[in-house]
Amino acid sequence: MLTSLWFDLCGRGGCSSSSSAFEHVFVGEIKGQKQGENEVSGFHKWIQFYLEESNGNVDYQGYIFPRRRGELPDSETQLLTIQFEWHGVLKSVSSTLICVSPEFEIALYTLCFFAGGEDNHVDIGPYSVNIKVLQVGG
Rank of each mutant, 00 (worst) to 15 (best):
S20K: 14
V93M: 01
Q83V: 01
Q78H: 13
N38R: 09
T77Y: 00
F43L: 14
E85H: 00
C15Y: 15
W86F: 12
D74A: 05
N55Y: 00
E76L: 15
P66E: 15
S54R: 07
Q83P: 03
V89S: 05
F84P: 03
S101H: 09
E76D: 15
D59I: 04
C99R: 11
S54Y: 11
S41M: 05
R68G: 14
S19Y: 08
V27P: 02
S54E: 13
E23K: 08
R68T: 13
Y63Q: 02
L80W: 01
V100Q: 01
Q83E: 05
S17Q: 12
T96E: 00
S94H: 02
S16R: 08
G88W: 10
D59F: 02
V93A: 00
S75I: 06
K31G: 06
S54F: 11
G13N: 09
T96C: 00
E85C: 06
C15N: 08
S75W: 05
R68D: 13
L80Q: 01
F49I: 10
R69P: 00
L90Y: 03
L79H: 10
S94W: 01
I82H: 07
S92W: 07
S16I: 04
G14M: 14
V25S: 07
F65Q: 14
V93K: 00
P102N: 09
S17C: 12
W46S: 09
F65R: 15
G62Y: 09
V93L: 07
E76V: 13
S41W: 01
K34N: 15
D74M: 06
L90C: 03
I64Y: 14
L51F: 10
V40I: 11
R67H: 10
L51K: 13
W86L: 15
Q33H: 01
I106P: 04
L80R: 06
G62S: 06
Y63K: 02
A21V: 15
G28K: 05
I82V: 15
F49W: 11
G32L: 12
V58K: 02
I82F: 05
